[in-house]
């Protein structure tokens, strides 16, 4: 195991140095007309309102109530997106080739980008910090059952775990199992049960 001895530390001004560099870059890029004073707000707004896990939740909820749609979602995620009332650009940045892996009683799927942070932005938005952390990237590939247990997902030994390396070529995400006791729920109520974690495979959906 690595030692905890604190002999090496980044400087205390680490954050301030990055903040100062970013401030300089922002001011230069605005001055040269490459971005505008509104760019930061408009990009962040895009992820708050247009691209986020609310889209993935709608797709999964529809797949739970409509078997034909589920087949389409599994066969061609991007075509399924086109059937939804989603904003334009769903097949744009980071969403060109999305695929979804279906959880069943026998198989549990989990996604990781071992090389960096590829993630299906259009259906799940921006990934959490832990997804981009070296610890997750390294460990879920070697010991997925232990990692899932750290997230609170305890799987029977008989359940096969499939780890999907989501990449620049294919951006994977997970179709969770519909929980029992949701038979009378509407599509919107079902969508409200879904979390990004469930659609990454590090949580089960609960009622």
């Amino acid at each position: 195991m690595p030692s905890n001895y604190p002999g090496f530390k980044h400087g205390a001004d680490r954050e301030a140095v990055s903040a100062a560099r970013v401030k300089a870059l922002e001011s230069l890029l605005i001055e040269k007309g490459i971005i505008t004073g509104n760019t930061v707000d408009s990009v962040l707004g895009h992820f708050e309102t247009k691209m986020g896990p609310f889209n993935g939740a709608k797709l999964v909820a529809r797949a739970w109530v409509d078997p034909d749609f589920k087949q389409l979602l599994l066969a061609d995620c991007n075509a399924a997106c086109e059937q939804m009332d989603f904003p334009a650009g769903m097949s744009g940045a980071e969403g060109e080739h999305m695929r979804i892996a279906e959880n069943t009683p026998e198989v549990h799927n989990v996604i990781v980008c071992t090389l960096c942070s590829c993630y299906p932005w259009p259906t799940l938005g921006l990934p959490p910090y832990w997804f981009k952390d070296p610890t997750f990237r390294a460990r879920v590939a070697r010991e997925p059952r232990v990692v899932l247990s750290e997230f609170g997902v305890e799987l029977d030994d008989s359940v096969e775990i499939r780890v999907w390396d989501t990449s620049a070529q294919i951006r994977w995400w997970v179709l969770p199992m519909r929980p029992a006791g949701t038979e009378n729920m509407s599509e919107a109520e079902l969508a409200a049960l879904l979390t990004p974690e469930a659609m990454m495979g590090v949580a089960q959906v609960s009622v």
Partner: peptide, 21 residues
């Protein structure tokens, strides 16, 4: 160094509750 899948000795995953974007 970016090819991290399977690397040993990484320690616990920093999972934050109510993490900001």
């Amino acid at each position: 160094p970016h090819d991290m899948g399977g690397m040993h000795n990484m320690g616990p995953i920093p999972i934050e509750a109510d993490e900001p974007v």
